[in-house]
Amino acid sequence: MAKLEEGKFEAVNGSPPRLRIGLFVTCLVDLMRPSIGFAAVKLLEDAGCMVEAPVQTCCGQPAYNSGDRGTTRDLAQRMIETFQGYDYVVAPSGSCAGMIKKHYPELFEEDPNWRVKADALAAKTYELTSFLVDVLGVTQVDATFDGAVTYHDSCSGLRELGVKTQPRKLLSSVKGLTIVEMNDSDVCCGFGGTFAVKYSDISGAIVDAKAKNIGASQAPTLLAGDLGCLMNMAGKLSRDGKPIEVRHVAEILAGMTDEPGIGLAKEAARAK
């Protein structure tokens, strides 16, 4: 159970109101790795929040970064309406949270009615670890993980939202876990959404450099806060035959590591 700083949210120990969180699970987590979403739910509930996951699709970032503002606006309006009733909106992704926080307001620059709503959503939307640390004041989690991990700073979380110390702070409270920093942890892994497919040669070269830095850290486990980057790095590491377990940071923080690492089969995980 995560502990709140004493006195910060008295309501947790006493009577409601508890914070009502809308979990923006993100489309990748929804489709590819729901266990990350459930880890996020556990972390938020442990911290005393009430978590709901309204029916949702995608924030629109793929359309936005492909230059399709029309589709992006449609999806953004849907998101704004879906999440308007919550105290906070939390996503286990710096990239998707960044889309809402930094880009939604810009998307409705010339539409004052929607701009107000976009601003309101932006103000209450957070990346998971930053919400736990910066908003709830969580300083430790009740989890155990034996071994060394290395942490990749995904670009949008790092540069759009300032997510850098928060995951490390929480990880350092996990019993048995040590953090080994890789070189260039803040350099892009080469994912970039559709970039990875459109410019696959370049993306392949960038993730190659990243995989070398991960390998050189000697840590048997790689963590990050964005599933897109994780799938890119995990896919590269497994293609290169490097036995490094890849997980979302929330899985470790929630102590939910029963599911095999990204790109590993259930059978293989059991055999370990």
Binding site: D30, L31, P34, G37, A53, V55, Q56, S200, A265
Partner: peptide
């Protein structure tokens, strides 16, 4: 093809978050 030329594509866990939720 662009993806799998340089890296494996991790398989999804199977059930979506929203379905399980």
């Amino acid at each position: 093809k662009g993806w799998t030329a340089y890296r494996d594509f991790p398989a999804p866990q199977g059930e979506t978050f929203q379905a399980r939720w």
